[in-house]
């Protein structure tokens, strides 16, 4: 113990110009700094500075919504990494998945992604369940509930489109069974009610090569076209929509009065 000024690494860091340029507040337990850390941080800014005590409790939210978001982020990261090793063609897809299992360093990435996808469906369902049970969809949060429902559907579609990518029997037939339902879409599916009415003379307009299922699969059956289309939907189209809707969803939580609570 000497009288020399104590070597305080924390202080050196928090008082450096670099730190200050990044964070507009000190790192202390003072109310002001804590408030600022939320207010001035782009990521924490999703939250208000203060929330209802009841709403902050784990027992109330189960953290299901936040967790869904976190699961989504892990899926984005692991998904991007998987894309480095995966080619969505009928020649390569299966082998590439096999490669993840057999020799790719940390090929466990595939397990993280797959189980994460299952987990996300559970957390999203759970989130909806909680929101319903606390009546949190009630005005003024109706619209955010609707967005939530769409996000739920998109989550399942994300999982569904990803299901095909390993290109094994499990994948192909699950998607075949699932996508066959699109054949029965009224008027737009070639086996849907009313499709037979859409004809020009004796030429059927809606047939297996021109119906909604064909547009989805890029072919009459689950084949090379479907693999590519599902890959694009899975990796680009649906995630983009999810990110946009999530932004609206989070924004609306703030605008609709934060985590719900009794009046």
């Amino acid at each position: 113990m000497s009288d020399k000024p104590k070597f305080d690494l924390g202080k050196i860091i928090t008082e450096s110009q670099i730190y200050k340029s990044m964070f507009r507040h000190g790192y202390s337990t003072s109310e002001r700094d804590r408030a600022l850390s939320v207010m001035t941080n782009v990521f924490f800014h999703l939250h208000p500075v203060k929330v209802r005590k009841s709403g902050a409790r784990f027992g109330f939210t189960w953290c299901a919504g936040g967790l869904s978001f976190f699961v989504f982020l892990t899926l984005v990261v692991s998904g991007i990494l998987l894309m480095f090793y995966y080619r969505p063609t009928v020649e390569h897809a299966y082998n590439d998945i096999m490669a993840l299992r057999e020799h790719v360093p940390f090929g466990i990435m595939r397990e993280l992604h797959r189980w994460g996808a299952h987990a996300m469906i559970i957390t999203v369902w759970l989130h909806m369940f909680r929101v319903f049970m606390t009546g949190s969809y009630k005005p003024p949060r109706e619209f955010n509930w609707v967005i939530g429902v769409i996000l739920l559907v998109l989550t399942m579609l994300l999982s569904f489109t990803g299901y095909l990518l390993p290109w094994d029997q499990l994948a192909m037939w699950a998607i075949t069974v699932g996508s066959n339902m699109a054949r029965a879409t009224p008027f737009l599916g070639h086996e849907g009610p009313g499709a037979a009415l859409l004809a020009l003379g004796d030429i059927q307009l809606v047939h297996s090569g021109s119906d909604v299922r064909f547009a989805l699969l890029g072919g009459r059956f689950v084949g090379a076209g479907a693999l590519l289309r599902f890959y694009i939907l899975h990796c680009v189209a649906i995630p983009t929509a999810v990110v946009i809707l999530m932004s609206v969803h989070f924004w609306r939580i703030r605008k609709d009065g934060g985590i719900s609570g009794p009046l």
Binding site: L200, I203, Q204, L205, V206, H207, G209, S210
Partner: peptide, 11 residues
């Protein structure tokens, strides 16, 4: 009609 623009995917 079936060969017309935009419709020529039908048949």
């Amino acid at each position: 009609i079936l060969n017309a623009p935009m419709l020529d995917f039908l048949k």
